[in-house]
């Protein structure tokens, strides 16, 4: 088990290294240069431009720049924002709580409503099943941005149940402020999860060992819990994991719509302003979160399915 985790952590580090290079070079592949943003359309003398380029090390060869940046990242120095002159690490730290709360809230919604609705639909069938199938199609089809606007106009503006913007403070405040954003963010993923769960449950219901257990007189509720739901959770775990990992990226749209001061909104702003250091840091963070969530899912999968042998060799 330990060897498996260590090996996966090594793979994660390699992934991060490769993506750091891609992230770093992608910014230079995009049109426009940082100094053209810095001068903000003003006409400046070539001397000033040269001094700016020298100050940000823009004249160094590409690989040298990458190396310097990577060294900084590894020592916790993510550089300085081009627009605000603030330290990127502390900037990021101030933004992380909002996004963390938002995605955690959305993840809980996905697990609770997606898995619950799918499981009940698969076990019960009938009208509830049809309702879940229909609801999940709608939930998946509605774009997140549209859902955000819709939720705001109905629950904030018309009914006045929730605040329109801001991320709130304290636990209750956060819950109050983040409910609508979290719902908007969770909706498509919950729809997918509900549908996958339903399919897995229906499939597992048909398994021979389920009918064997029933034919042995094991009560239905025990069979449903121990044999149908437990086994159906194997594929569901993977889908839930991938969807939760993707939330961090999806949060950008929702944070923008609800004007929340999270990492996602920060990413959008910094891309628009070509704030190199911030974009690189946020992109790297997204990759890291995705990798860590996937690692957790893989470990969880091995725990719930004994047939998965960690490390490939004998357990």
């Amino acid at each position: 088990m330990l060897r498996f985790v260590l090996r996966r952590l090594g793979a994660l580090a390699a992934t991060l290294l490769i993506s750091s290079f891609l992230v770093f070079s992608a910014m230079y592949a995009a049109p426009g240069t940082p100094e053209s943003f810095l001068v903000q359309g003003r006409t400046v003398s070539p001397e000033v431009l040269a001094s700016i380029r020298a100050q940000y090390g823009l004249d160094d060869p590409f690989l040298i720049r990458y190396w310097n940046w990577l060294g900084g990242v590894l020592t916790g120095d993510l550089g300085e924002s081009l627009t605000t002159r603030q330290d990127v690490a502390s900037l990021l730290a101030s933004r992380i709580p909002t996004t963390l709360w938002l995605t955690l809230y959305a993840a809980v919604l996905i697990v609770v409503f997606g898995v619950l609705a799918g499981a009940l639909a698969g076990l019960r069938g009938g009208a509830f099943d049809t309702g879940v199938l229909l609801g999940s199609s709608v939930g998946f089809a509605v774009p997140t941005f549209f859902a955000a606007v819709l939720l705001m106009s109905v629950f904030s503006v018309t009914l006045g149940w929730f605040p329109v913007f801001g991320s709130g403070s304290g636990f209750a405040g956060r819950i109050e402020h983040l409910t609508l954003p979290a719902v908007a963010l969770a909706l498509p993923a919950a729809a997918v999860v509900a549908r996958i769960t339903r399919t897995a449950v229906v499939e597992e219901r048909e398994a021979e060992h389920v009918s064997v257990a029933l034919a042995r007189g094991v009560p239905w509720r025990v069979v449903a819990r121990r044999h149908i739901l437990r086994n159906a959770m194997l594929p569901v775990t993977t889908i839930v994991g991938v969807n939760i990992a993707a939330l961090v990226a999806g949060a950008a749209v929702v944070e923008h719509a609800f004007t929340l001061d999270g990492v996602g909104a920060m990413l959008i702003n910094s891309v628009q302003q070509k704030d190199f250091a911030v974009v690189q840091a946020v992109a790297l963070l997204l990759v890291a979160v995705f990798g860590v969530v996937n690692l957790v899912i893989d470990i969880l999968y091995a725990v719930i399915d004994p047939r998965v042998q960690l490390g490939g060799e004998s357990a």
Partner: peptide, 17 residues
């Protein structure tokens, strides 16, 4: 092989009945 739940131990199957 199809009669036993693949993710539960044999003891579970025997005791469950």
């Amino acid at each position: 092989r199809a009669a036993l739940n693949p993710v539960l131990r044999v003891a579970r199957f025997l005791v469950e009945g």
